[in-house]
Amino acid sequence: MAPQSGTSKKQNKAAKNAKMTAARQRVAEQRERDRKAAKRRSILIGGTAAVVAAGVVAGLAAVVMTSDDGKSGNNLSGNITADVSAAPNISSPIEGVSTYTASQGHEPNKNITYKQTPPVGGQHDPVWQNCGIYSQPIQDRNGVHSMEHGAVWITYNPSLPADQVAKLQTKARTDFMLLSPHDGMSTPITVTSWGFQLKVDNPDDPRIDAFIKQYRVNKQTTPEYGAACTGGIGKPE
């Protein structure tokens, strides 16, 4: 067989060089794709970590807010007296109801003193009490916030007989109602909404139902009408 000509050798060499160049280009392109994929993974992992971190921070905030078995207002510093005044110029259609004007405002780091027992409004905790029935006293500062949202709060002397407490529980089994015992009251039962208060001697007093109908989630008397009475603190029965 005749030896390859010089031209054929040059053509073969050129073809090999072209294949090697193409191979190097494919390797470079693959490396670039790998680099971009790694960058995307890094961004995704970083974003996921940020979301997780945010969730952890939010969870810790929620734990702090609702710590101590559903009680807030711990680690308070400083003292204030809630700004609440009698309002004889405001009338109520229900006989015996006392009326008040009350300032609003959240005081997360203050010990709040209320001049009325139980309170009828004024500065309060940033977190409201979940509406419902409680067999133990709740903190005034959280109950006041619930009334700001439209709740009616029935309180009773801890020594009230069980059968009378049961009657109050029947009245409180609806939305935007709070029921709990309370120390230091001048009458066995007190019914309160923001700025209005009725003191009675027994659960059969018809004015209790009239009060609830008049002031529970009342657009005209609820400072923050439309706000919730769930999602706060406390575990009602």
Rank of each mutant, 00 (worst) to 15 (best):
M185A: 06
V144T: 01
T230K: 14
Y134A: 04
T187R: 15
I208T: 06
A162G: 06
N111D: 14
K167T: 14
Q139M: 04
L179A: 04
A162R: 09
Y225R: 10
G226W: 02
Q214M: 13
P161V: 08
I189P: 04
R173P: 00
N130W: 02
D125N: 13
G226R: 05
H149Q: 04
N89F: 09
Q164I: 02
K213Y: 03
V152S: 02
V165W: 09
E107P: 05
T117W: 00
I133M: 03
I154G: 01
L198M: 06
Q220L: 12
F196R: 15
C131V: 13
Q136W: 04
G122R: 01
W128D: 08
Y114Q: 08
G150C: 11
R141L: 01
T221R: 14
G132C: 07
I208E: 03
S180V: 04
V217P: 00
Y100V: 10
G195N: 12
K235Y: 04
V200A: 12
V217K: 15
Q169F: 03
I90V: 14
V97C: 08
I94E: 06
K167L: 13
Y225P: 06
K219A: 15
Q123N: 03
Q214G: 07
D201W: 00
R173D: 15
D125K: 01
Y134D: 09
K115P: 02
Q220M: 02
P118D: 06
I94R: 04
C229H: 02
G121M: 03
P181W: 00
Q139A: 12
M177F: 05
G105M: 05
S146L: 09
F176R: 10
F211D: 11
L160V: 09
K213I: 00
R141N: 07
S180F: 00
